[in-house]
Simulated scan of single mutants.
Amino acid sequence: MNALSTDLFLNWEYEKGKNARIRYREYSQPKTDKPSLLFVHGYGGMLEHWNQNIPLFAEKYHILAIDLLGFGGSEKPNARYRLSLFAEQIRALLVHKNISNVVIVGHSMGGASGLYFAHENPDIVEGLILANPSGLFGDTMDPMAKAFFGLIASPLIGEVMFAAFANHIGVSQSLLPTYYNQKKVDLQLINQFTKPLQDKGAVWSYLSPSRRPHDFTLEHLPKPCNYRNKAFLVWGAEDSALPPHKIIPEFQQLLPQAGAFIIPEASHCIHHDAHETFNARLAYILSHEL
């Protein structure tokens, strides 16, 4: 990409008296005529999951990509992980880089975190582009899934199951349902998602959504939320975990101004699963809608 796309780190005080190193990357220099773009990955992901998206925009826009606390190359302390914490992390990075005008591109949990940040800081965000965002689930979780998450919420069973799944086979089995194009789940992607699972403290962040599910929902936000600027929902038609026909109307209660664009033959990891179509839609939004 360019000379600025190497790993950078921010020492962030995530709780009073507690600091952690946050990994991010920066592409190009800030532009006077365009907002910065901030890419925020989903649960279990990392900034490299945007590798088929960022290069297309890196010459034209100033871009930041971040690893959320507990994921990717960021530290993984024993903290209370939650959307509000990730929103605080986003704010810390933007303050660190002196950015007051940003478009957030967020996938899944990263989309929910970006929306939470925009709700609390509406004047900073020029646009929200949410790719299969999580945070609103309705009645989409079947009884078997609820029973499973109940099991891994138990500290002892959860850690045993984490150890069982924190390997190439477990990662492959977890990723395949999130892709329509199964060939995209190759060894490179599996290695990319497996490596952070071996880090010290990974068990704390990866099990947090099952142990404290309410910390990862947007249900308590007012409808509509405080963010009133432009918003866009981009969804994979084949996302069985967050089916668009059920979840999009819920997000449009939070963001009535948000239009929805559904990409066929794409599942939950839409930005990587169908990267060419996703990139074309993102380019259109950035050029014609913002």
Rank of each mutant, 00 (worst) to 15 (best):
A147D: 08
S174M: 15
A164S: 15
Y61S: 08
N101P: 10
A163W: 06
D239S: 07
H41A: 03
N78Y: 06
E59R: 12
G42V: 05
L94K: 06
D199V: 02
E289I: 14
L69P: 00
I248G: 00
E126N: 15
I90P: 08
A58P: 06
F137C: 02
H107M: 09
E238D: 14
A237D: 07
P264T: 06
P122M: 01
G17Q: 11
N181I: 03
T140Q: 13
G70M: 05
G17T: 13
M161T: 04
M1G: 03
L38G: 05
R281A: 07
N167S: 11
N279D: 14
S74F: 07
D142C: 08
L56Y: 12
V105D: 08
I129D: 06
F71G: 01
L37K: 11
D123Q: 14
Y179A: 03
S267P: 10
V103C: 13
M1P: 09
P122R: 04
P264L: 05
P224I: 08
I157C: 13
Y180M: 08
R91V: 00
L130C: 02
D123G: 11
L282D: 01
G45W: 01
Y284A: 14
K76T: 10
Q29M: 12
L47G: 07
L93K: 00
L47N: 01
Q198C: 04
P256A: 10
Y206D: 03
Y14D: 04
M141A: 15
L207K: 08
L47E: 02
T277E: 15
I63C: 14
L47W: 04
E159P: 00
A283K: 15
L38S: 05
D273H: 01
Y81V: 09
N191F: 00
N181W: 00
G236T: 05
S267H: 01
S267E: 05
T140V: 14
K31V: 10
L197F: 02
S174W: 07
K16E: 14
G72D: 09
R211I: 12
D239W: 05
G111R: 01
P209Y: 04
A163D: 15
W204C: 11
K34D: 10
K76R: 12
Q188W: 04
P256M: 11
G73F: 09
F278K: 02
G106R: 04
A112P: 08
M109C: 02
D67F: 02
Y180F: 13
K146P: 02
N78K: 14
I285W: 12
L156S: 14
F216C: 10
G138I: 10
W50Y: 13
E48Y: 07
R211A: 13
D273W: 10
A118H: 10
L10Q: 04
D273F: 01
F9V: 09
F86L: 03
L93A: 08
S113H: 02
D142Y: 07
R80S: 13
S172K: 15
G138A: 03
K16H: 14
S240H: 01
R211K: 14
H96T: 03
A153C: 11
